[in-house]
């Protein structure tokens, strides 16, 4: 399985159902997907197709009902809760559509959160946070509250937060859909430019066709399945 070494995420026959009995909803119906290390993979598809469920499983915040999902070779579902938390804290970065910054914390403080979770000291974390904010071009706004920042700036803070602890996998949920085209473009450039490192893998859920061009590969989903995987956005339509 030498090839598996290069895989960031490997999903086999993922099945996820919510609820039981008649109210049972099937979100994933056997997903097979590999994400290579260092790759920017986009998940696209109509809403309700299971994209969010899939990245939730990949990020280890949701357990699949059946199937196998390995992240950097780890079967998260069968890890002990504690180990799973530690794995997530160390290896996964999150970028959300609604930014999900803590409104009462300054930009720098928001950025430190993953480091704090990993047990890094506050001062050290703040220092690091300022560096990272500098990288995303917000070196002057470290003390601003999220409400004092524009949407794009907030998303950049979120990106800084996602990368500060140097995770190997960053999952992004519609990172640009709340932004105008230009800002979205900038955010994507940032993501691509800063986040993408040698062993950093990005999985981005989006239906924003304007940013497809940033993808290395695009997985199209429908009705709980990956219908196809393309390397070029032009192949989609």
């Amino acid at each position: 399985m030498a090839a598996d070494q290069d895989l960031a995420v490997s999903c086999r026959g993922l099945l996820k159902t919510y609820g039981t009995g008649e109210a049972m909803v099937t979100a994933l119906q056997g997903v097979d997907l590999d994400v290579r290390q260092g790759e920017l993979m986009m998940l696209v598809g109509p809403s309700g197709c299971g994209k969010t469920t899939l990245i939730s499983v990949m990020a280890g915040i949701l357990d699949q009902s059946e199937g196998d999902c390995r992240v950097f070779g780890q079967d998260l579902m069968h890890l002990r809760n504690h180990a799973k938390l530690a794995f997530r804290a160390r290896n996964i970065g999150f970028v959300f559509q609604a930014y999900n910054l803590l409104p009462t914390l300054t930009a720098a403080e928001n950025v430190t959160v993953p480091l704090l979770i990993n047990g890094v000291g506050r001062k050290e974390a703040l220092k690091k946070a300022e560096q990272v904010l500098e990288q995303v071009g917000l070196g002057t706004r470290t003390r601003s509250l999220p409400s004092q920042l524009s949407g794009g700036q907030q998303q950049r803070v979120a990106i800084a937060r996602a990368i500060i602890h140097e995770p190997r996998l960053i999952v992004c949920d519609e990172p640009t859909s709340a932004l105008d085209h230009e800002t979205g473009h900038k955010v994507m450039e940032l993501l691509k430019g800063i986040a993408m490192g040698r062993d950093r893998t990005l999985v981005i859920v989006t239906h924003d066709a304007r940013i497809f061009e940033f993808a290395d590969r695009i997985a199209e989903m429908d009705d709980g399945r990956v219908t196809r995987v393309v390397t070029n956005s032009s192949q989609l339509h």
């Binding site: 915040i61 938390l85 997530r88 803590l102």
Partner: peptide, 11 residues
Amino acid sequence: QFGVLKAMGTS
């Protein structure tokens, strides 16, 4: 926000 903290690995 608690959810975010939880997702990011807070126990």
